[in-house]
Amino acid sequence: MSTIIEHKKTKVITDNGLFPSSEVMLDLKNLKKVYPTPKGDYVVLENLNLQIKKEEFVTIIGHSGCGKTTMLSMIAGLNPISGGHISVLGKHIKGPGPDRGVIFQAPSLMSWMTSLQNVLLGVNNVFPHATKAQRNDIAKYYLQKVGLEDAFNKKASELSQGMQQRVGIARAFAIKPKVLLLDEPFGMLDSLTRGELQDILIEIWNKEKITAVMITHDVDEAIFLADRVVMMTSGPKAKIGDVLNIDFERPRTRKAVLEHDDYYKYRKHLIDFLEH
């Protein structure tokens, strides 16, 4: 079955104060990050404003070292905020929490645990009142979703990189976060595996519709997955440079996206920005 993708008008949003607050999941206001160095302060991010709507998938691209990962780890609560604030559903965040699931660049699985135990580690903590069987079911459900139904009891150290990252995806979805943060999750994989995992990710996402923010270096990945692509300027004092709406209808197939007339227009827009 081929999906027909309707062509909507491409519009570029430069000001981010557009959405009504009831629709906003994640709000970054005047965000600032400063690292003190012996030669004085180094400002990584400054005046960064970004709103992300509920059930929206946003990808972020920008040059290496521009502060994308810094921004994401600030949203995750792993990196202190120097100025401005971040809020989830209108509440300012204080430190990390299970309302924001993270898929790291390295799978970061506990290599001495099985894949099931790795997923359960989060599930047990987030659903303390569920029965053991229920928690097991949740963990197994998501492992099945990422195609690991045969590897529940395999030690993480016995899995390939790609399979480990599948467990990472299952672990993040299984705690049912409000926001999913992905830090170049497929950057370390070969292109075939990367394609497979993109399909798996988008398939689960289509079902769960968890607001997602994903950093990537891959322009095609950014377009294929996102509702909006956010382009960051190069640091220091990085901020949002440009935002591109991707108006392909969901669910998308890779083939339909690649064959769409607008695809190359989007691609050119992103590459022009990056090469600028």
């Binding site: 792993l78 790291f104 580690l121």
Partner: peptide
């Protein structure tokens, strides 16, 4: 970081 995110 994983332990922090999962709030162990």
């Amino acid at each position: 970081n994983v332990a922090k995110v999962l709030k162990l």
